[in-house]
Design a protein around this nucleic acid. Structure first.
Lengths: 212, 212
DNA sequence: TGTGCATTGCACACCCGTGTGCAGCCGGTC
DNA sequence: GACCGGCTGCACACGGGTGTGCAATGCACA
C-alpha cells in the first residue's frame, strides 16, 4: 500500500507500513534468517524443517516463496549482495592489495557464520545457479589477488583465480572451526589467509594488528 | 572357493579364482570405481545413476551392496584406508615435519581426484559416519602439524588441528581446480600448503623441488 | 461490526529414490 | 548336456519431500 504526497511540485512515493505488512515482512524475514541457519547445518533440510524452525507451518512458507528453489535463490542473492557490498567497498579504497584484503576480511568475518550456507550450497542441487550468482564476487576477488601479485606483495605459486578461491574458502573453513572452539577469530583468519596469499609471516602479523 | 595345500607341514590357504568370481569381482570393482567418480561430481546421485554409469542395472548394484549406505561406507573405507596408508608410511620415516608433509603430499596427490568424494560426503547425509572414519587421519595429521609447530618449522597462527584441516582441504581445493585447468600440479599444491602451514616461501620452494 | 488477508490445518496428487521379489536369460562349470 | 549363479528387466510397496487447494481462524483496519 502506498501514499502519494505532493510536496513542492515533486511527487514522492512513501511506502506505508501497516501493522499487517510489517508483521508479514517480519515472518518473511524470519523464514529467511532461520533458513540460513538450518540450511547452514543441514543443506538438504526440507521446507518442513525450515518452517517449523521458523515457527510457522510449511504452507506459510509456500505463501512467501512459491518454490524451494525460489527460497534458495533469495538466500543466495542476499548473501552474495551483502558480501559483494563489503568487497566493492574495501576495493574502492584503492590501497595496497594486502591492506584491501585485510579490510575485506574485517568486513567479511562477521558474515561468515551467517553465510556458511554458500559453500555447502555451491556443491548441491542448485550449485549451477549459486555459482553464477557468485561469479562477480569470484571475479573481483581474483582481480584483487591479481593486483597483489602484480605489485609483488602476493605470491605467484598459484594463478590468481585459484589463489583467491583458496583464500576465500579458507575463511569459511576457519570460521567453521571457530564455531565449535571459540578460541579463533578474525585475527587468526586474517593471518592464515595472508600466509596463503604468500605474504611473509612477520608482515602478515603486522597487517593483522587491530583484528580481535 | 578355496584350495587347501599342505606344504612342509604348513597349511596355506590359496584362494582359487574361477572365471565366475573373477568377473563378479570385476563388476563389483567397476561399480565402486564408477561410484567414486559419479559421487565425486554429484554427491547426491542415486543408485540408478551409479548403476548406468557402471554399465549395469540398478538391481545388480543392490546385489553387491544391499544398501546405498553400504556402498558409501565401502567407498569411504577404501579412501580412508588408502590415504591412511600413505600418511602412516610417510610419518614412519621420522624425518622433519616439513619433509614428512612434502612426502605425504607426493603420495596423496595422485589420489586426490579419485577421492574428492570425501570432502563432499563429509557434509552430507552420511557425514557422521564419514567423519568418524576420517577420525584417525585427522588425528595423525594434527599430530604431524603439532610436531612441526613444536620444532618451530610450522606457524602457530592456528591450533594444530585446525591448521591440518585447512591444509588438507586446500589440497583437494587445488586438485579440483587442477581438474579443469591442467596447469597446476603436485608442486603447486606442495608450495601452497607449506605456505598455509607457515613455512617461508623460499624454504617452501626449496622443499618442493622434485615435485612435477 | 464487517471486510480483507495472512496464517493455519487439513486434504490431496505427484515425483523420485529406495529396497525387494521374481521370472528369464546366459555364460561358466561340472 | 544339465546345473549353478550372476545379470537383467520387469514388477511392486514404501517413504518422504514437493507443491496445491480449500475451508476455518484470527487479527488489523475502516
Amino acid at each position: 500500500m502506498y501514499l502519494i504526497a505532493h510536496v513542492c511540485a515533486k511527487i514522492t512515493v512513501v511506502p506505508i507500513e501497516s501493522a499487517r505488512t510489517r508483521s508479514m515482512n517480519a515472518t518473511r524475514k524470519r523464514i529467511l534468517d532461520v533458513a540460513l541457519d538450518v540450511l547452514g547445518q543441514k543443506p538438504d533440510a526440507g521446507m518442513g524443517e525450515i518452517a517449523s524452525a521458523a515457527g510457522v507451518v510449511r504452507r506459510t512458507v509456500y505463501g512467501h516463496f512459491p518454490t524451494r528453489a525460489d527460497l534458495i535463490r533469495n538466500l543466495a542473492q542476499q548473501a552474495v549482495q551483502e558480501i559483494a557490498a563489503v568487497l566493492t567497498e574495501t576495493n574502492a579504497r584503492q590501497g595496497a592489495a594486502e591492506e584491501a584484503w585485510v579490510a575485506f576480511l574485517a568486513g567479511l568475518w562477521p558474515l561468515t557464520h551467517r553465510y556458511r550456507v554458500l559453500l555447502a550450497l555451491r556443491r548441491g542441487e542448485y550449485g549451477e545457479e549459486i555459482h553464477s550468482l557468485l561469479g562477480p564476487i569470484d571475479q573481483d576477488l581474483a582481480d584483487l589477488v591479481q593486483r597483489g601479485q602484480d605489485s609483488e606483495v602476493f605470491g605467484r605459486h598459484l594463478p590468481a583465480d585459484v589463489l583467491s578461491q583458496l583464500a576465500f574458502a579458507a575463511v569459511f573453513t576457519i570460521a567453521d572451526h571457530d564455531l565449535s572452539s571459540r578460541t579463533l577469530g578474525a585475527r587468526a583468519a586474517t593471518i592464515a589467509t595472508l600466509l596463503i596469499l604468500g605474504v611473509p609471516e612477520e608482515r602478515a602479523q603486522a597487517l593483522a594488528e587491530g583484528q580481535p
